[in-house]
Write a protein that binds this DNA or RNA. Structure first.
Length: 847
RNA sequence: GCUCGGGUGGCGGAAUUGGUAGACGCGCCAGACUAAGGAUCUGGUGUCCAUUGCGGACGUGGGGGUUCGACUCCCCCCUCGAGCACCA
């Protein structure tokens, strides 16, 4: 098998340009105080989600977003911006460690190998990253600041009054005790049922459970003492401050949904001498409550259960405990048992029976509800099954008028809500309440390959305290065996040298989750080598925006409720504490769609439909891969791969190449001479000798407009179509003025930088295209003197007529009516009306 | 069930204040150059009818509506995908 001849020699010039860019640091971005920094230039910070460097190497999904941002970055640079476009590695985390355990290699080595491979792959795609700013979350110089930020969280609390985080030292000054302070820290120890994965030997955050289950890991509920972050305090702000961001509505919806805000009321019922608080979104139906339900885990269950019901209740509780949440959800039939106790409805003194049922969750609200079967589907199902009374309190006809409810009768639902809440407050039986679904963030992991917590425990008192900042970074000890042990304290517990800090103090053995490092990496890129600050104030002021630090962020929507929520939370804490000016991390965000396999299914090893970017680069070149991924369709849409499509854009690039070069008899590429240097004093319009060049100028400038409009709206597929049409026009011309062609190359350069630079050089130019300014659009070239008007009769296309662009309405109408085919269709009819849309069409209404 | 996003040729997709539906690419058909073409170039290509000539009918998931005019706006329905899911 002989090597197939390449349609153009990308295999020769692509590596050449990549080396050139790397050696000359062509894409270095100077920041404040650095050599070459120009404060007069506007800045633009465009960011990709940094990859987790897996052993499998780059996936074709990665270059989709990366190419999009690269195009915008290069475009902005050519428009005079100082563009920050960095790349780094999210190298901690469970996958790295699982892989290391499987292969027996230390995760540090695995990580090193993988990041080297990823870097090579990215460089072979010609992305304009400033590699001097590369960050790696596992680098001690980086994780030091991750631990520092954790200490900021540890050392602060959320002030409800001001709705912001403040240092706990303020509470100390007010005389709070250590225990009281520990209860309000943003990072706190909490014992509660958590998601424990026996197969991985660690706990997981709520947000992570589904992902790992899908990968075949087991997850169960288990009560454990864990470090939590008090993200729930930020629930309202996380919703409110999402609003002004330039994010896709669907992603905003996903976050809002996850945070899950509900407005309602808390109502206090009396239950055998205890006050039981329930949460309801329908306080207006309080008169319709016919029974109460407690979650099986509710603390009052055993106390209020009457003697005769005890056995049945215990049995039910045992049955519930053995069921996982998953199984509970799968139960189609409602189940439950009466406790024998009765609660008193505060509004009318009615005694209603108290039941226990697992359709009420301890984790939401107060774990107790008032059941209104007439107006709640679930309560209705339960009431019907157990034959409990159903009391209508909203009028059936209009679904909006309250009935059977004493002083609420006749009111609308909205009015009744207001009135009953007022009544509850006055009678001290409840209050308005806003409830969120969001839970606090379970932040500790029982793993080796993560940032250790910079915390110490007093062996005697059991108190925790922060490690002094001067002792950061705190690295994990070197260990041979770090397999999960099943011990919920994690593998570090086996390293006694490391644990014992002093006589009195020992280290926390948990590590942070992968999200820790990715929560703030976008800040570090701005000042990656600073040893004094996680980011200097100058760099922060220069690179960040107040209404959203990063100008434009692109990355997968699978992080909509994980990384994107966690980052926002940390950012707000750092903002509250005065470390950051901006309130939000990402001003504009965009999620590229999934690239599916050629068979239309999600790419996976087992289906054998995975496309390896290295193979595509080898066969068609980096420019072809870049261009194809942008040409596939709208960026935000899921779309299937088609190798034939790669060939299509590859042919297009070859066509551009052949405008400059032809192959001689020996099979060598030679300059074709089709590109003509501007002979007559650089004037591209030389009407006498070259009637076609005016047309080419027009096409070229139309292309400038179409390409830049498309880049602004991220419709890269249409930008490429425009360039293809332009190329087709060039192909059919006998000569192309060089100036025009160089303009075209500038348009092409953000998309296919290697080919564009190569041709620019072959044509004798010495300045890199990427260092030149984006071409200026000459609007005057777009003005048409003659236009085509569409002529419709009764809305149906009947003719197209060629007229002067400035034709008057009357003349246009006359010309249309005079058309042969129009007359054929209006014959025998009366023209009732003629609509003339100037420059577009004429519609004749006749019957 | 709730929330969000889709449905346009054989395929990926164009059509951004309602104004030529199908740009561009793939695939396919025909031709040119060739010893040869899986290279390249040229032409054609929504469906159906007519094709001796203009041309005509239908057509953007289905049904209805608004309008001189609807892929685009409104109502109802079908369908596919994603996220959440006994959240009171």
């Amino acid at each position: 098998m002989s090597e197939k001849r390449k349609p153009y020699p990308f295999d020769l010039f692509e590596p050449k340009w990549q080396s050139h860019w790397a050696e000359n640091k062509s894409y270095r971005t100077p920041g404040p105080g650095e050599e070459g920094f120009d404060p007069a230039k506007p800045k633009y910070y465009i960011l990709d989600m940094f990859p987790y460097p897996s052993g499998a190497g780059l996936h074709v999904g990665h270059p989709e977003g990366y190419t999009a941002t690269d195009i915008v970055a290069r475009y902005k640079r050519m428009n005079g911006f100082n563009v920050l476009h960095p790349m780094g590695w999210d190298a901690f985390g469970l996958p790295a460690e699982q892989y290391a355990i499987k292969t027996g290699t230390h995760p540090r080595l695995t990580t090193q190998t993988n990041t080297d491979n990823f870097r090579r792959q990215l460089q072979e795609l010609g992305f304009a990253y400033d590699w001097d700013r590369e960050v790696n979350t596992t680098d001690p110089k980086y994780l030091r600041w991750t631990q520092w930020i954790f200490l900021q969280l540890y050392n602060s609390y959320f002030c409800d009054e001001d709705q912001k985080a403040k240092p706990v030292s303020e509470l100390q000054a007010k005389g709070w005790t250590q225990d009281q302070i520990d209860d309000v820290r943003l990072a706190f120890i909490h014992e509660a049922p958590v998601n424990w994965s026996p197969s991985m030997g660690t706990v997981l955050a709520n947000e992570e459970v589904e992902e790992w289950k899908a990968k075949g890991e087991s997850v169960e509920r288990r009560p454990l003492r864990q470090w939590m972050l008090r993200i729930t305090k930020y629930a309202q702000r996380l919703i409110d401050e999402l609003e002004p961001l330039d994010w896709p509505e669907s992603i905003k919806a996903l976050q809002r949904n996850w945070i899950g805000r509900s407005e309602g009321a808390e109502v206090i019922f009396n239950l055998s001498g205890h006050e039981v608080t329930i949460f309801t979104t329908r306080p207006d139906t309080l008169f319709g409550a016919t029974y109460m339900v407690l979650a099986p885990e509710h603390p009052l269950v055993s106390e209020v259960t009457t003697q005769d019901r005890k056995e049945a209740v215990d049995q039910y509780l045992t049955a519930c405990a053995s069921k996982s949440d998953m199984e509970r959800g799968l139960d189609k039939e409602k189940s439950g048992v009466p406790t024998g106790a009765f609660a008193t409805n505060p509004v009318n003194g009615e005694k209603i029976p108290v039941w226990i049922a697992d359709y009420v969750m301890m984790g939401y609200g107060s774990g107790a509800i008032m059941a209104v079967p007439a107006h709640d589907e679930r309560d209705l199902e339960f009431a019907e099954k157990f034959d409990l009374p159903i009391k209508q309190v909203v009028c059936d006809q209009d679904q909006n008028t309250i009935i059977n409810s004493d002083f609420l009768n006749g009111l609308s639902i909205k009015e009744a809500k207001k009135k009953i809440i007022h009544w509850l407050v006055e009678n001290r039986k409840g209050r308005k309440k806003i409830q969120f679904k969001l839970r606090d963030w379970l932040f500790s992991r029982q793993r080796y390959w993560g940032e250790p917590f910079p915390l110490l425990w007093d062996k005697e008192s059991g108190q925790h305290s922060p490690l002094p900042e001067t002792e950061l970074p705190l690295l994990q000890p070197e260990m041979e065996d770090f397999k999960p042990t099943g011990d919920p304290r994690g593998p570090l517990i086996n390293c006694s040298d490391w644990i014992n800090y002093s006589e009195k103090l020992q280290r926390e053995t948990n590590t942070m989750p992968q999200w820790a490092g990715s929560c703030w990496y976008y800040l570090r890129y701005c000042d990656p080598h600073n040893e004094e600050h996680f980011i200097s104030p100058e760099n922060q002021n220069y690179w960040g925006n107040e209404d959203g630090f990063v100008d434009f962020y692109v990355g997968g929507k699978e992080h909509a409720v994980l990384h994107l929520l966690y980052s926002r939370f940390w950012h707000k804490v750092l903002h509250d504490l005065g470390h950051l000016k901006s309130k939000e991390p990402f001003k504009k965000y965009f999620a590229p769609g999934l690239i599916m396999g050629e068979d239309g299914q999600k790419m996976s090893k087992s289906l054998g439909n995975v496309v390896n970017p290295d193979d595509v680069v080898k066969n068609y070149g980096a420019d072809s891969l870049r261009l194809y991924e942008m040409f596939m369709g709208p960026l935000d849409q899921d779309k299937p791969w088609a190798m034939k499509g790669v060939e299509g854009v590859h042919r297009f690039l070859a066509k551009v190449w052949r405008l400059v070069c032809t192959e001689d008899e020996q099979g060598q590429w030679q300059l074709s001479g089709k590109i003509q240097p501007a002979s007559d004093s650089g004037d591209s319009q030389s009407p006498s000798s070259q009637p076609a060049s005016a047309d080419l100028a027009k096409v070229t400038h139309q292309t400038i407009k179409r390409v830049q409009d498309a880049i602004h709206s991220l419709r890269f597929n249409t930008a490429i179509s425009a360039m293809m049409e332009c190329t087709n026009a060039y192909t059919s011309a006998t000569e192309i003025p060089k100036g025009l062609f160089l303009t075209f190359l500038k348009l092409l350069s953000p998309f296919a930088p290697h080919l564009a630079e190569e041709l620019n050089q072959l044509l004798g130019e010495t300045e890199l295209l990427s260092e030149q300014l984006w071409p200026q659009l000459d609007e005057s070239l777009l003005v048409e003197t003659e236009i085509q008007l569409i002529v419709q009769v009764n809305g149906k296309l009947r003719s197209r007529i060629q007229v002067a662009a400035d034709i008057s309405k009357d003349d246009a109408e006359k010309a249309a009516l005079a058309d042969e085919n129009v007359q054929a269709h209006t014959e025998g009819k009366t023209v009732r009306k003629v609509i003339v849309v100037p420059g577009k069409l004429i519609n004749i209404v006749a019957n």
